[in-house]
Amino acid sequence: MILNPKFPLYLPGVKNGSNDNVSIIGANLREDITTLGYFVSSNGGLEIKIQNNYPTKDYTSFTEILKKFVQDNQLENTKRLGIAVPGPVLDGKSSPARLGWNLDIEELKKDFDFERIDMLNDQEASAYGMALLEDSDLDPIYTSGHLEKGNVAILAPGNGLGEAGYFFDGKYLRPFATEGGHSEFSPRTNVEVEFYQFLNNLYGIVSWENVLSKGGLFNIYRFLRDVKRHPEPEWLSDRLANGNFAEELYKAAVEEDVLICKIALDTFLEFLAREANNLALKLKATGGLLISGDIPQAIREYINKDKFYEKYKISDKMEEMLKSIPIYLIKQNYTALNGAALYSAYIQE
């Protein structure tokens, strides 16, 4: 994997020859699956040698998974470790709510013989990993043909709602994390006010993550079913309860033409367009808007790009700026894993 010139990342260590041929373990910690990879740095990029998935809930700690990965693959003298976590990282520590683990770089250094350990928010890691994407991994929703110069926004609905960005310093893109997914959701129409009240009874404070995530898609669906009384076929109830909710909902909408599922997806995409608008404005993302995450990738074929763009560009005074921002859907699913390893390989000189 080599760096894509569309993403001119600030990676000062690329120019340092001592960062070539360095062995690195990258890790992406998620609520359902934790993925680890063994990488070797070369020529300013990365070569992945091994990649394994582990059911997160089967393990009591990340240390347990890491030991198993090292033992299973007989890895010795690995130099660096890069970890992507679904939450904020403060002073080398993180306690992601969805994992129930306490992570501490200093504790990991005691247990493992790495020369260097880095830990960063998963969306910041994903921003680094996007620099390794090929052009074929970028599915344009709206574009003038290329990414313009300027800040870039990243919106990623999955188990939670990831939001991050790149600051453009005039020459390089510098990734940064946010916790914008936890900002408060606001309704616009009368039906959305009903939806807000429904969520307010469940959560108290209603965040965008309660709307744009796997749980958020379920919230939209059950609001349509339980409050708006859209009929749910009996066979669908069993499939949704026993399978992957987002995948089953998508199949029912596309293959079975089930109305409640189509409305749920349409509603989700309208909210996605609106939060894309919010994030692009807050970051002044004239360099582009990148949409990633499990759900957009899973329902990519359902997305009406023209309709999404029309919903996205609605604004009181900023429509002209929004219309100038290219929008891409990311098709690749391992940007956080790759980004954590890339960070460890080249961020320091």
Rank of each mutant, 00 (worst) to 15 (best):
A27F: 01
A27T: 06
N28E: 14
D32H: 14
T35C: 07
L36E: 02
L36T: 05
F39E: 06
F39V: 03
F39K: 11
S41Y: 03
N43D: 15
G44F: 03
G45D: 03
G45H: 03
L46T: 10
L46D: 12
L46Y: 09
E47L: 13
E47H: 09
I48R: 15
I48F: 03
K49P: 01
N52T: 13
P55L: 08
T56A: 07
T56W: 02
K57Y: 01
K57F: 02
Y59D: 07
F62Y: 07
F62Q: 05
T63W: 04
E64F: 08
I65Q: 05
I65D: 01
I65A: 07
L66F: 00
K67V: 09
K68N: 09
F69Y: 00
F69I: 04
V70W: 07
V70H: 05
Q71R: 14
Q74S: 12
L75E: 05
E76D: 12
N77F: 05
K79G: 13
K79H: 14
G82V: 02
I83D: 02
I83R: 01
V85Y: 00
G87D: 00
V89D: 08
V89L: 05
L90D: 14
L90V: 15
D91N: 15
D91H: 10
G92V: 08
P96K: 04
A97E: 14
G100Y: 04
N102D: 14
I105V: 12
I105M: 01
E106C: 06
L108K: 04
K109L: 10
K110R: 07
D111Q: 14
D111Y: 07
F112A: 02
E115I: 14
R116S: 15
I117M: 08
M119V: 03
M119Y: 04
N121D: 05
Q123V: 13
Q123E: 09
E124T: 05
A125Y: 04
A125W: 00
A125V: 00
S126C: 02
S126M: 04
S126L: 05
A127E: 01
Y128N: 02
Y128P: 04
Y128A: 04
G129P: 02
M130R: 08
L132V: 11
L132D: 11
L133M: 09
E134R: 11
D135H: 09
D137H: 15
D137K: 12
D139Q: 10
I141A: 12
T143D: 09
S144D: 11
G145T: 10
G145Y: 07
H146M: 15
L147P: 05
L147R: 15
E148M: 13
G150L: 08
G150P: 03
V152C: 08
A153I: 10
A156Q: 05
N159T: 15
E163F: 06
